[in-house]
């Protein structure tokens, strides 16, 4: 019990650390937020632009909303992935990794605290992106089923966190290469998860890879909920894959993380210099 409370407090240390870093780096955070908003807008304008180019009538409003859901959900997932996936790399850049790893707090506290902050921050950010985009487009959000949307994003976040934890360990194995791999993993997820298109348009093998990404199911569920007002029952078939992915990826992420740490302690790769 005492141990649980201690880990709880240690987790909070990482929530507070991330919050303070956010405040101190606010200029950068603002830049990335503007980036995310501009990105969402430019993607959404593809819908009316597509109609102009094709010269045919099609359901522009539906496509706009389809794309906006993609950008907003991606803004959320990307932020979670960034905050969690780079938690080790960040401490390496700052040079604090040894003093953090030497402290009695468990790695679980680091993962839990960082994840909690990441999810809260990413959620607020995604809402901001949605808010600004809705000033530019007349989005029809009235028929949306928000309960379904929330359920899908909550369950989907677990699997996504597992992936992020797994890649977070890469910098322990490969130094700079590890950070590059984190970026590439995120890019791959963007490609295969159907952020801006149904994954059925991808070549079969990429579609098959996309079926392994939790983001695919999250996006499908969000679109069903927001575009068609689907109830939780309507999207029930999305939950088993999300739960299976989460059940595999989260423990695997923890194992990979542990193994990577042990390797780093053995090989002297914890620290960048010396």
């Amino acid at each position: 019990m005492i141990a649980v409370r201690r880990e709880w407090r240690a987790s909070y240390a990482f929530v507070e650390l991330n919050y303070r870093a956010l405040k101190r780096y606010w200029g950068w955070e603002l830049v990335w937020l503007v980036f995310a908003i501009v990105n969402a807008l430019t993607v959404a304008y593809i819908a009316p632009g597509g109609r102009e180019v094709a010269g045919e009538a099609f359901a522009t409003d539906r496509l706009v909303l389809f794309l906006v859901i993609g950008t907003v959900v991606w803004a959320y997932l990307q932020q979670v992935f960034d905050s969690v996936g780079f938690m080790i790399a960040w401490q390496r850049w700052e040079g604090t990794i040894e003093s953090t790893f030497m402290a009695p707090a468990r790695r679980l506290a680091m993962v839990a605290g960082t994840s909690a902050f990441a999810i809260a921050y990413a959620f607020v950010r995604a809402l901001l992106v949605l808010g600004v985009v809705s000033l530019f487009f007349d989005l029809d959000l009235l028929q949306a089923n928000w309960l379904t949307a929330l359920a899908v994003i909550c369950v989907g976040s677990v699997g996504f966190l597992g992936l992020a934890v797994m890649v977070a360990a890469l910098p322990l194995l490969f130094l700079e290469r590890g950070e590059q791999m984190v970026m590439i993993s995120l890019a791959m997820l963007l490609l295969v998860s159907g952020v801006f298109y149904p994954i059925e348009v991808l070549p079969d093998w990429l579609e098959a890879v996309g079926r392994l990404s939790p983001a695919t199911y999250v996006l499908e569920g969000m679109r069903a909920a927001v575009l068609d007002g689907a109830s939780i029952g309507d999207v029930a078939e999305l939950f088993p894959p999300l739960v299976v992915i989460a059940a595999v990826v989260l423990p695997l992420g923890v194992v990979v993380f542990r193994t990577a740490e042990r390797y780093a302690l053995r090989s002297g790769r914890l620290k960048r210099h010396g």
């Binding site: 201690r6 407090r9 240690a10 909070y12 240390a13 507070e16 650390l17 303070r20 870093a21 101190r24 780096y25 700052e94 040079g95 604090t96 040894e98 003093s99 953090t100 030497m102 402290a103 009695p104 707090a105 210099h273």
Partner: peptide, 27 residues
């Protein structure tokens, strides 16, 4: 605890913020 030759901190955070973080890790 250990002091290393290269003082390593979250550079944008203040000494107080850095040390409070560290203290929390030690409960």
């Amino acid at each position: 605890n250990r002091v290393s030759v290269d003082a390593s901190f979250f550079k944008k955070l203040s000494p107080l913020e850095n040390l409070v973080f560290s203290a929390r890790l030690y409960d």
